[in-house]
Computed example of a mutant assay.
Amino acid sequence: MNEPSVTSGPAATLGERIAAEIATAGGWLPFDRFMQMALYAPGGGYYARDARQFGVLAKDGSDFVTAPELSPLFARALAAQIAESLAATGTDEVWEFGAGSGALAAGLIDALDALGQPLARYTIVDVSGALRARQQARLAAHGERVRWASQLPDALRGVVVGNEVLDAMPVKLLARRAGAWHERGVVLESNRPPALDGQAPAAIENEATRFAWHDRPTDLRPPLEVDGAHDYVTEIHPQARAFIATVAGLLQRGGAAAAYFIDYGFPEAEYYHPQRDAGTLVCHRAHRVDDDPLSDVGDKDITTHVNFTDVALAAQDAGLDVLGYTSQSRFLLNCGIAPLMEAADLPARATAMKLLAEHEMGELFKVIGFATPGHPPALGFAAGDRSHRL
Rank of each mutant, 00 (worst) to 15 (best):
G129E: 09
A130D: 12
L131F: 13
R132Y: 00
R132I: 13
A133E: 15
R134S: 14
R134K: 15
Q135V: 06
A137Q: 14
A141H: 11
G143F: 02
E144F: 00
V146L: 04
R147V: 14
Q151G: 13
P153W: 05
P153M: 08
D154C: 09
L156Y: 00
L156Q: 03
R157S: 15
V159G: 00
V160T: 01
V161G: 03
V161N: 02
E164N: 04
V165Y: 07
L166R: 03
D167G: 00
A168F: 02
A168G: 00
M169E: 11
P170Y: 11
P170W: 11
V171T: 07
V171P: 02
L173F: 06
L174T: 09
A175T: 12
A175N: 13
R176A: 10
R176F: 09
R176M: 11
R176P: 02
G179A: 06
G179W: 04
W181A: 08
W181K: 08
W181P: 01
H182G: 03
E183F: 09
R184M: 15
R184P: 03
G185F: 11
G185C: 10
V186M: 07
V186G: 01
V187A: 07
L188N: 06
E189Q: 14
S190F: 09
P193Y: 03
P194I: 10
L196T: 03
L196H: 02
Q199C: 07
P201H: 01
A202N: 06
A202Y: 06
A203D: 05
